[in-house]
Amino acid sequence: MVANEWLAGHHADDQRRFTQLLWASLGAHVVLLLGLALAPSPAPPPLPEVLRVDLVAGLPAPPRAGPSKPAPAPAPAPVAKPRPKQVVLPKEAPRAVPKKRKTPPPPARPEPVEYEDAMAQLRNELGEQTPAPAAAPSGASEVSDEELMATTAPGQTGTGGSTLDKDTARWVIATQRHVRNSWVTPPEFLNRGLATIVEVELTALGGVVGTPRVVRPSGGPFFDDNAVRAVLHSAPLPAPPASGTWTFSFSED
């Protein structure tokens, strides 16, 4: 209302000139924005090595000793690997558009590494033993939570096949070793088939927030307590790829 009163007090020529200036300004903005949108991006940073992960095959379980243990089942026929998902790179912070942009050829992207090979390499780097290969469950196009917990290998993610970058795989193995060293397991806790699932809230630096939560008890309360104790005693953990909730499974094999 105030604006209409103000416009009504001006001459018609002034109004026309104002309209022309408005359109000119708008056109200049559009041109600038289109230029920004269509400009080629700066040179991409070196891409991290990407691991293809096939969740159908699980990592081997350590061999069980004892006369009553059944022999491992023969490996079933190989299952077709699901197509790996495209890795989504983290977005960069916005930058000013350079006046002259050179577009260097992107660095040679390494060939995707098979999960088992990468894990073996990582274990070798970390001085750990490479376990023997295990049988893969057949027909596991979709893996339930229970099956996942029972068969998911260290470093594997998701269900039905997914990808896991090398940094995460490295962190998983380092964390396994770190927590295992703090997990005191009196023999009386073993050979009872106990397993517990614990959720741990981690900071970006590996600090443990609060007390880990037992989300699936083993049935042995002292076994569960001891798993929580192991996480707390090993804090801080290696800095995780991302802060937030991580799931730990404690079992004897």
């Binding site: 998983v172 927590v179 060293n181």
Partner: peptide
């Protein structure tokens, strides 16, 4: 959406006595 995270499996180490 947040990517699914791996389950970190922990198996017994060498320490058997508190």
């Amino acid at each position: 959406p947040a990517e699914e995270r791996p389950i970190i499996e922990i198996h017994p180490g060498k320490e058997q006595a508190f």
